[in-house]
């Protein structure tokens, strides 16, 4: 039984086994390499995507649960959003391996809190590990994208 979902707005049918990880389906079947694998066990958030608007770690999600789901990966985010611009300007990316997941976490956060407090930002990102930045520049980028002052 193929699984049918919408990925970044396009209908996609996968014939992989229902037990296949969504992460592998995205990377190997859809060639969406922006979703990264950092740990494979739900700890790092490098594989985070939005499923029906909610942030999930795609390494933990079996394909079988994705029937009719609406999935957004980093490739599905607008390239020229306030968030993307703020990430570049504030230095929120260093090695970049966590960045796709961070972009999705930030997108989910801003959808919930249009003007998040620092505490809300901290909690919103707490499922996404970054070893490079110490998170400070990422907070600044999100605050700036939300129209707040960015302490850069």
């Amino acid at each position: 039984m193929p699984t049918t979902m919408r990925i970044n707005g396009k209908v996609f049918q996968s014939h992989s086994a229902p037990t296949a990880r969504l992460l592998d389906v995205l990377r190997n079947d859809c060639h969406l390499k922006g979703t990264k694998e950092g740990c494979g066990e739900g700890e790092c958030g490098a594989c985070a995507v939005l499923v029906n608007g909610k942030l999930v770690n795609s390494c933990l999600v079996p394909l079988g649960q994705m029937e009719r789901a609406e999935i957004t990966t980093v490739e599905g985010l607008p390239e020229d959003s306030a968030l993307a611009r703020a990430f570049v300007r504030c230095g929120a990316t260093q090695c970049g391996i966590c960045t796709p997941g961070m972009m999705l976490a930030a997108t989910a956060l801003l959808a919930e809190h249009a003007h998040p407090t620092l505490e809300e930002i901290r909690w919103g990102l707490s499922g996404n590990l970054c070893r490079c930045t110490g998170y400070g520049r990422i907070y600044a980028a999100i605050a700036q994208a939300a129209g707040g002052p960015a302490d850069v």
């Binding site: 922006g34 990264k36 993307a84 570049v88 970049g96």
Partner: peptide, 19 residues
């Protein structure tokens, strides 16, 4: 502090890592 030269590719997920 100009924009990072590698910023855009990393933020859009188009930068290619070994895997």
């Amino acid at each position: 502090s100009p924009a990072r030269v590698d910023g855009f590719a990393k933020i859009t997920g188009s930068a290619l890592y070994v895997d």
